[in-house]
Design a protein around this nucleic acid. Structure first.
Length: 827
RNA sequence: GCCGAGGUGGCGGAACCGGCAGACGCGCAGGUCUCAAAAACCUGUGAGGGCAACCUCAUGAGAGUUCGAUUCUCUCCCUCGGCACCA
């Protein structure tokens, strides 16, 4: 017989809701805890990934609340996005209706899990009272020059028919549909996240409680690299040609210059030359080629000589300017100095096109890192026998006055010298690009801008917000912004001159919505500002954020950027939005991600119907540490069911008997007290370090111990143990433990009781069993009173027949004693 | 290639700061109850050897430090994740 989970889960969900137990209330001066899980996209049904994410969050939330913190634990829906639009294309439904249906359905499913949300604070991003603040923030950014429109090469997904941010391009494909992205020159809206590059990188140091790999991923993504911009001169025109390098120590080895196909100089140099048409054809083709093709493995580096020459500022040498597809316009200056002896890409290209290779860094004799020379000989000026470039450190040669210096030193000395002689300057390059936010889609926040033939680009005045999405737009999926086809939306008088003008018809990327929702939760009904600065001052930062690793860059980087921007507007007083981050692992079935196409989806609802929400919650926490991948196992949940049923029976036994001491203070009783307090300590420690799987093991061990113990009679210690077990269990199986708490006769609800505190005095053991080793191998065990002196122990151990047997008559050289744990006799 | 995480029974996973490797659970085997089955309960369960007490081996591979290494150091192999003609 299994306990009546369906009934009690419903009962307690109702009671908690009616009493508003989880309604967040600020209390100045009181300790607060803001726990946030990444809000879901309302796809209609929750999946195991959601269950895992929100259960982990709930355990931590309930634990903090039991410790007396004021808890903010909100939930909402990240409701703009493509699935709704795709449903509109396929089934002709209204995206708004479709989305709100999904929201309703998911809300019901989420509530069934019994999570401690304050539903009064729910936020749905597709509603005007939310997205008007997207527009408000956008206008603030526009005002500060941080939102701007520019024609730039952008990523285009031909399948989704929209532009993508760099962060949304995964392995050269669209993050949603994996279609290879195409480069396009388009005029689009950007957010100047690069204005915060330095700070976004620097402040990663504040994020000591983020997983290291997330910090590393962000650091790599921001990609700071120090180098020198060197000013070459175009021989023919005298104009300056800046190139970027991180290896100024190799400047004397530059034997040609390469510009990217998109570089404006390329066109200038070839104009009027006999080979003009041929070269242009190459350039055009290189530009057209997708990045995927250009960077595919094994593809030869293609390039042509432009006919122009550049002058190297350090030695006045004239070297040819090539155009080649291995140089990218987006990085650095779009032009490089090629040093084939010390850069593998340049090396291959030089070999292919018979360009000179000049060695300027001499590899150390003993060890060459790259570019092993045959028979260990060190090449001087020539390097015809090299198989690859030498990219390591060595001594400067062929480098004028710098000859003989170690290249590490050469690097800084040459940079300083060039700066002094005005041949270049030290610069910092970033990999991070500005954030492209315009999307040619319907289901998103309209960008609040107006184009006027007279006034140009005019922002929608603040008092005219929100610019609402027109309800009926032709959503065909054929490409182009659907809003452009809605005349009533597009045609608008210019806010400045009143002449006819037209609205921007692109919408914002949905990552805009989620970049500040954590702030909105602090005051979700605020009408004058996106959030109430007083409320955010109390609740922010988020003390614990939980979500999937897939957002390690995108969402988390954008949120950090928004926080810094809003801080600079005087609306916030913090640098970082999320103090602690936990990235939970994925839920797998048969080693693969659960997905409809694989047909291996396990529906949480079905599991709840069969075993109850508490069992599902506990299983998903027990099966793996939160950060690891979790392999779903249909059988293993049985173990949790058995455990819960056994606890149920145990409570009935304990509750039935009056808690009077039946045999006074016995050893059996104090042993149970010791185990109880040890369990309190273990579970508390495990919760602090997110080891939720071992916390559950500890609960099981305590239950096993109670059962064994009360076989000899029920004592007050058994009751104490039982109560502690329920309290410790409450974050994991809240309905179940609440019900039993009530059945034990408790008047106050368990979710309102304080977290138990262990008594350190009770943890001490009277007797300890020591491990006895001879030469590091376990040979015996000895149970002795705790706290014996080392000498007494030695005496006892050396008298142990198991030890004398292994000593074989020899006198021990040494005896190592680890108090209360182990004795090692060394012969 | 660079950066990060990891490799422990049939499976998921434990092991504090270097101190009994395999907690807890799943599965499996045997047993109790039953006409029978399920459930429940009890016992066993890393491998090999031995009638047994016990012994030997074992945490990806190899070396090192140590009285003692899953844990620390070095070399190597493999898996996963991120970045990548970034100059």
């Amino acid at each position: 017989m299994s306990y009546p989970f369906a009934e009690i889960e419903k009962k307690w969900q109702r009671r908690w809701e009616e009493a508003g137990v989880f309604r967040a209330t600020a209390e100045p001066g009181a300790k607060k805890f803001y726990l946030l899980e990444m809000f879901p996209y309302p796809s209609g049904r929750i999946h195991m990934g959601h269950v895992r994410n929100y259960t982990i969050g709930d355990v931590l939330a309930r634990y903090r609340m039991a410790q007396g913190c004021r808890l903010l634990h909100p939930m909402g829906f990240d409701a703009f996005g493509q699935p709704a639009e795709n449903a509109a294309i396929k089934k002709g439904v209204d995206p708004a209706e479709w989305t709100m249906d999904c929201v309703r359905q998911m809300r019901v499913e989420l509530k069934r899990l019994g999570i401690s949300y304050d539903w009064d604070r729910e936020v749905v991003t597709c509603q005007p009272d939310y997205y008007r603040w997207n527009q408000w923030i956008f206008l603030k950014m526009f005002e500060k020059g941080l939102a701007y429109r520019a024609k730039a090469p952008v990523n285009w997904c031909p399948s989704c028919q929209t532009t993508l941010a760099n962060e949304e391009v995964v392995q050269e494909g669209c993050w949603r549909c994996h279609t290879p992205v195409e480069p396009k020159q388009l005029e689009q809206w950007f957010l100047k996240i690069t204005a915060y590059s330095e700070e976004l990188l620097e402040d990663l140091k504040q994020l000591a409680d983020w997983p290291e790999r997330v910090v590393t991923m962000q650091r790599n993504w921001i990609g700071r690299s120090e180098g020198v911009e060197i000013w070459f001169t175009v021989k023919e025109t005298g104009e300056r040609l800046p190139v970027f390098t991180t290896r100024p120590d190799t400047i004397f080895g530059a034997t040609y210059v390469v510009v990217a196909p998109e570089h404006p100089l390329a066109e200038k140099l070839i104009r009027g030359r006999p080979e003009e048409t041929k070269i242009r054809a190459f350039i055009q083709q290189a530009i057209r080629q997708s990045k995927q093709d250009r960077t595919a493995e094994g593809v030869k580096k293609e390039g042509v000589f432009t006919g122009g020459y550049a002058v190297n500022p350090v030695n006045g040498e004239t070297i040819p300017i090539w155009v080649a597809d291995y140089v990218l316009m987006e990085y650095g200056t779009g032009a490089i100095m090629a040093v084939p002896a010390h850069d593998q890409r340049d090396f291959l290209f030089a070999r292919e096109h018979q360009l000179p290779i000049r060695v300027v860094i001499q590899p150390p004799q003993e060890k060459t890192q790259r570019g092993q020379t045959p028979e260990g000989q060190t090449p001087a000026g020539n390097s015809l026998n090299w198989k690859e470039a030498f990219e390591g450190e060595g001594a400067q040669i062929n480098s004028a006055q710098f000859d003989g210096l170690p290249s590490v030193e050469g690097k800084s000395k040459i940079a300083a010298w060039m700066e002094e002689k005005e041949m270049g300057k030290r610069v910092v390059q970033w990999r991070l690009r500005d954030w492209l936010i315009s999307r040619q889609r319907y289901w998103g926040t309209p960008i609040p801008m107006i184009y006027c033939g007279v006034c140009g680009v005019v922002p929608v005045p603040e008092n005219q917000l929100p610019v609402t999405l027109p309800p009926k737009a032709p959503i065909t999926g054929e490409g182009g912004s659907p809003l452009a086809k809605v005349k009533e939306f597009v045609d608008v008088p210019c806010p400045r001159c009143r002449k006819p003008a037209r609205r921007e018809t692109d919408t914002m990327a949905t990552f805009f919505d989620s970049s500040w929702y954590c702030l909105r939760f602090c005051a979700p009904k605020e009408t004058r500002l996106p959030f109430d600065p007083k409320e955010t001052a109390y609740w922010m930062p988020v003390d614990q954020y939980i979500g999937g690793i897939e957002h390690a860059i995108l969402h988390l980087l954008y949120s950090r950027f928004f926080t810094k921007f809003l801080r600079d507007q005087g609306l916030l007083k913090l640098d970082e939005p999320f103090s602690r981050l936990l990235t939970q692992g994925m839920v797998l079935k048969d080693g693969e991600v659960m997905s409809k196409s694989r047909g291996n989806v396990v529906d949480p609802d079905g599991v709840i119907a069969r075993s109850g929400a508490d069992a599902l919650r506990m299983f998903i926490l027990f099966a793996a540490p939160p950060e690891d991948q979790l392999e779903w196992n249909d059988n293993a949940i049985e173990g949790i069911n058995r455990f819960l049923n056994k606890v149920w029976d145990l409570v009935e036994n304990v509750a039935a008997v009056r808690p009077e001491p039946i045999e006074g203070r016995t050893d059996r009783e104090s042993e149970l007290r010791r185990l109880t307090h040890a369990a309190i300590k273990r579970v508390t420690d495990d919760l602090e370090s997110f080891k939720l799987n071992t916390a559950i093991s500890a609960l099981m061990e305590l239950r096993n111990a109670i059962e064994k113990n009360i076989a000899g009679g029920i004592s007050p210690a058994a009751r104490e143990a039982m109560e502690a077990l329920l309290q410790l269990l409450s974050p994991f199986a809240p309905h179940f433990s609440e019900e039993l708490w009530e059945r034990l006769g408790q008047k106050q609800w368990l979710c309102r009781s304080r977290w138990p505190v262990y008594d350190a005095n009770l943890l001490a053991q009277k007797e300890v069993t020591l491990i006895i080793q001879v030469n590091g191998k376990v040979r015996s065990r000895l149970t002795v009173p705790a706290g014996l002196s080392a000498d007494e122990l030695k005496k006892k151990v050396l008298a142990d027949p198991a030890v004398t047997r292994w000593l074989d008559g020899k006198t021990p050289r040494d005896v190592i004693v680890v108090p209360n744990r182990l004795v090692n006799v060394v012969a």
